[in-house]
């Protein structure tokens, strides 16, 4: 177990290292960063000056190692546009995205797990069909369209919820639904198929043969098993949501890292962009690691071996 854990941890570190390299290369090879930072209409001399100031004239690997070295000391660079440390800028934006991601995940789980369980307990009935349609619709609906639909319905037509900003909890409701809905089909399908399997299993038959109350059979001896892969999937989906929140955040003007990324891309603020790429990739890698750990923790057969 310990060997497995340390292997898995090393793997995660390696993945983050390689992705950081890719993030760096993406930003530096997709055009001339100095020209982009100097802005349109800058003279050749200005660009040269920028290049020298920021060290873009050094070989790439030197720049990369320099960047990694600074990251390891907690320095993510400096935003040229905002004239602030990237670390400080991220510290303002990350909590918003984290809140959004967790709310979205909560919404997704609260919708998809009960639906999946009921669908599995009553296969091929009306509720099962309904669940299937929720899943199919969820897969066919682009998230920005769903967000706009919500905005129109609750923000414009009924005027129930604020449509932009992130000042209060009310601001998070629609974005969370829009972002979370995208994860529901996968979670629901996995819950449904897991429950279908486990309800056929021998130990559930034992539980029923010993007269346990129906909810105990379903929750303690059924869902307890079906939920194990769902937990891993949920962690991975949270990672995807962090990466995909850019669309939702721009629509609702939610000032999280997605919104920041979009703004920074338009301002060619490359230090911020590469820091965001790194943070999101690292978050995803850590979440998948967490998913594996949770998997092991939830299954005694893996935990004690």
């Amino acid at each position: 177990m310990l060997v497995y854990l340390s292997k898995r941890f090393l793997m995660t570190m390696l993945v983050i290292a390689v992705t950081s390299g890719i993030a760096f290369l993406l930003v530096h090879l997709s055009g001339d960063p100095a020209a982009a930072m100097a802005g349109e209409g800058a003279s050749e001399a200005d660009i040269e000056a920028v290049r020298a100031t920021y060290g873009f004239d050094r070989p790439l690997y030197v720049q990369y190692l320099d960047w990694v070295g600074r990251i390891l000391t907690g320095d993510l660079g400096r935003s040229t546009y905002l004239r602030a440390d990237v670390t400080d800028v991220l510290a303002r934006h990350v909590p918003v995205t984290a809140t959004l991601g967790l709310c979205a995940l909560t919404f997704a789980l609260a919708l998809s797990i009960p639906l999946g369980v009921i669908a599995a307990l009553r296969p091929n009935t009306l509720i099962d069909r309904f669940a299937l349609w929720v899943a199919v619709a969820g897969q066919a609906l682009p998230s920005f369209l769903f967000a706009l639909g919500l905005m129109y319905l609750f923000g414009v037509y009924f005027r129930l919820l604020p449509i932009s900003g992130n000042e209060t909890w009310w601001h998070f409701i629609m974005p969370s639904i829009a972002l979370g809905y995208y994860a529901t089909p996968a979670i629901m399908r996995l819950t449904r198929s897991g429950m279908l399997d486990v309800m056929q299993s021998d130990h559930v038959r034992t539980a029923r043969a010993y007269g346990l109350a129906p909810w105990r059979v379903v929750v303690r001896h059924g869902l307890r098993h079906a939920i194990i892969p769902v937990v891993s999937l949920a962690a991975v989906q949270l990672g995807f949501m962090l990466g995909g929140s850019i669309v939702i955040e721009t629509i609702f003007s939610l000032k999280g890292i997605g919104y920041l990324a979009w703004e920074s891309i338009q301002r060619a603020d490359i230090e911020v962009i590469q820091a965001i790429l790194l943070v999101i990739a690292a978050a995803y890698a850590v979440l998948t690691l967490l998913a594996d750990l949770l998997n092991a923790a939830l299954d005694p057969r893996i935990r004690i071996s």
């Binding site: 992705t19 993406l26 930003v27 997709s30 990466g243 979009w262 990739a281 998948t288």
Partner: peptide
């Protein structure tokens, strides 16, 4: 390993960055 790295990179963001730059 490549697959893992690819999954770790956020698709929308990477595409945006490349296209923008």
């Amino acid at each position: 390993f490549f697959i893992t790295v690819r999954l770790t990179l956020p698709v929308v963001l990477v595409a945006l960055v490349v296209v923008a730059l």
